[in-house]
Design a protein around this nucleic acid. Structure first.
Lengths: 361, 361
DNA sequence: TAAATGTGTGTGTGCGGGCACATAAATATT
DNA sequence: AATATTTATGTGCCCGCACACACACATTTA
């Protein structure tokens, strides 16, 4: 058992050439005779050479500038977690020469997005991470970055045109499907079930529709349509009075309402309203471990939260870019993070301790 | 914004000493005057110096031998996953000078454990990872390793005497508590619930008792004792006929049986039996994503599996040892992995793709 | 035919840290 | 005061890789 690690030097010795020649072969820099090149390639193959990534990264002392184009968490606290993940990754990966510049835009203002994206493009970073929540407005930038040869990774929202280096996020359809299962499992009696889209313009939010689609398909694929009546509603808190009126209307007109599936991170709004009205028998399933959601989860008002692992998404994005830029590794084009089912009894393993580490087999 | 990375050389310059002196201060090797030491320490603090781990690992060309004392997966396929995790970690970390030697023992044979542990101890590895499933027999080895200064990490089974470098695993109590929640959530009508311990000697398996304890406490803490009658049974497949007889007996004598909580990875045995008897209304909750469990999960016979992430445990153990040995980082004493709730609709994110990476924020 | 260009190969250096060794300065011993 | 010993500090090399540079030899061009 000779576990010896193979170095360029070893290959050079075996091929009776200098390390420089081996280096030229490895990097396809040319200036090597065909005969020698073939011989070296064969030896590399035989000895199963793998470059020492540390030595490689150490030598090239470059600092890579990564641009993070992210929504402002002051507008929507959901975006706090990805930012935290990005910053954690920056800290961890600083020693590999990674530096992250954040470009923060208002998620409710397209102009702000475009302005920041323009600035970013002008700054010519070595890599980009972004959540392309404005579909149409993002496409031209993809084109620019593609021609400029700047790798970009997407998180949270997937866009398949102009293939990115990597997409990190969840499978929205499947998460809706899972939500269907959770509601079905907890609801043996026939009843009505409400899908609530809160605070998002449905027309621009493809992922919400995917969730709804998956949710509905769970019931149809399991032939449960006769047992559960599925309703849907779109609510927006920008008009608080209207929000309450609409919600009350559907609750009162649906006495057999068993569960509510909230497709956004705003499940707490429903929970709060039900609590005020002293309604306890309606189960709620929502998304994301935001503090207000956690509050109602711990109270038992929210049964389950599906965790989109937003912090992990940010972390992973930077991590992938680092693998690509620094270590020249191949990175998976799509990285679906698990659909974590979070409930009061296991929530503490998912809310983070600041020194939790993402580990990836 | 000067993101300049601070090197020993920078510190030396600022302190007007040589890098060697700074090095001695950093490593507390002494031979430095108090005055200079203080000055250097202050500068290190000010400049927020962090050693370049790559350079460090590169320089010390040592290959660390890690010994993995693990149960044979041919005796119990549960142990396949940790082994896979360990091997994955070895592959990933090989470049940092990590080499893993496996010592495989028969989990049903104490003598085999002792023999392997003795051999391991004789081989004087630089670090050890093990699952100490034989409590009493493990303690003397802990003592030996402690005095020999060999760090060891535990996974799967926790032993608190002789504090290890790290424990990686699950909180058994909490996982039982969670199982209680899952059963309660899916069972609105009063009924009987069975706790089944399969294929383990309860007296030696403290973690199973912890699971049972957590499970029972879920019901008592939520004042549900009047609603659910909790039964328990210990089964062993070593006598197949008896296994079936006992199982049938309790099923037949409990017409209102609503759910079964299997504390080991053998939920599939119950599922198979219920299937043979065409019983469909009893819900099953168990542990671990073994192929037979997955089979019945996908069929819908098993409602949920709590994932102990055994592959991650193995991976993590090696990872922690690497952090300790190679990078001289501090590692968390206890690393509780999340209690993943796995159901048919999200299982594919937990069964692994071979190139899944454990990532740790 | 000399000079310019091209091809194939070897050599040297630096990246940051760690450590062995060399050397200088301070203190102790005779 | 001269020598020995301890203590404090500086220097040089290695780790594996990448890349610039040097150089020898072959081929083309003026």
């Amino acid at each position: 058992m000779k576990n010896k690690i193979v170095r360029i030097k070893d290959i050079a010795e075996k091929a009776k050439v200098s390390t420089g020649t081996v280096d030229r072969v490895l990097h396809k820099r040319g200036r090597v005779s065909k005969k020698v090149e073939e011989k070296i390639l064969k030896i590399i193959e035989e000895m199963d050479y793998e470059p020492n990534l540390m030595a490689r990264a150490l030598g090239s002392n470059k600092v890579y500038q990564i641009a993070a184009l992210i929504p402002d968490h002051k507008s929507d606290s959901y975006w706090y977690a990805p930012k935290a993940g990005i910053e954690k990754a920056e800290k961890d990966l600083k020693q590999y020469g990674i530096s992250v510049q954040q470009y923060v835009f208002d998620p409710y203002d397209v102009a702000s997005f475009i302005k920041n994206a323009n600035q970013l493009t002008k700054d010519k970073p070595d890599g980009i991470i972004l959540s392309p929540i404005f579909y149409r407005e993002t496409l031209p930038f993809f084109e620019k970055w593609k021609t400029a040869g700047i790798p970009f990774v997407l998180f949270n929202t997937q866009i398949t045109e102009y293939e990115p280096l990597s997409y990190i996020g969840q499978d929205s359809y499947q998460s809706g499907f899972l939500a269907g299962k959770l509601i079905h499992y907890g609801q043996s009696e026939p009843c009505s079930v409400l899908i609530a889209h809160i605070d998002e313009e449905i027309s621009n939010a493809a992922h919400l529709l995917k969730k709804e689609h998956g949710f509905r398909n769970y019931f149809s694929q399991n032939s449960l349509e006769h047992q559960y009546k599925i309703l849907r509603i779109e609510l927006n808190r920008s008009n608080a009075a209207l929000f309450i009126t609409q919600l009350d209307a559907i609750i009162d007109s649906t006495p057999d309402m068993g569960s509510i599936f909230v497709t956004t991170s705003k499940a707490h709004e429903i929970a709060r309203h039900l609590e005020q009205r002293h309604i306890k028998h309606i189960k709620i399933i929502g998304y994301d471990l935001l503090p207000p959601n956690l509050h109602f989860l711990n109270k038992g008002a929210i049964s389950f939260l599906i965790n989109q692992n937003p912090k992990g998404q940010g972390y992973w994005g930077i991590y992938q870019l680092t693998d690509h830029l620094v270590f020249k590794k191949e990175v998976p084009i799509i990285k679906y993070l698990p659909l974590d089912i979070v409930t009061k009894e296991n929530v503490n393993y998912y809310t983070d301790d600041e020194d939790t580490v993402y580990l990836d087999i």
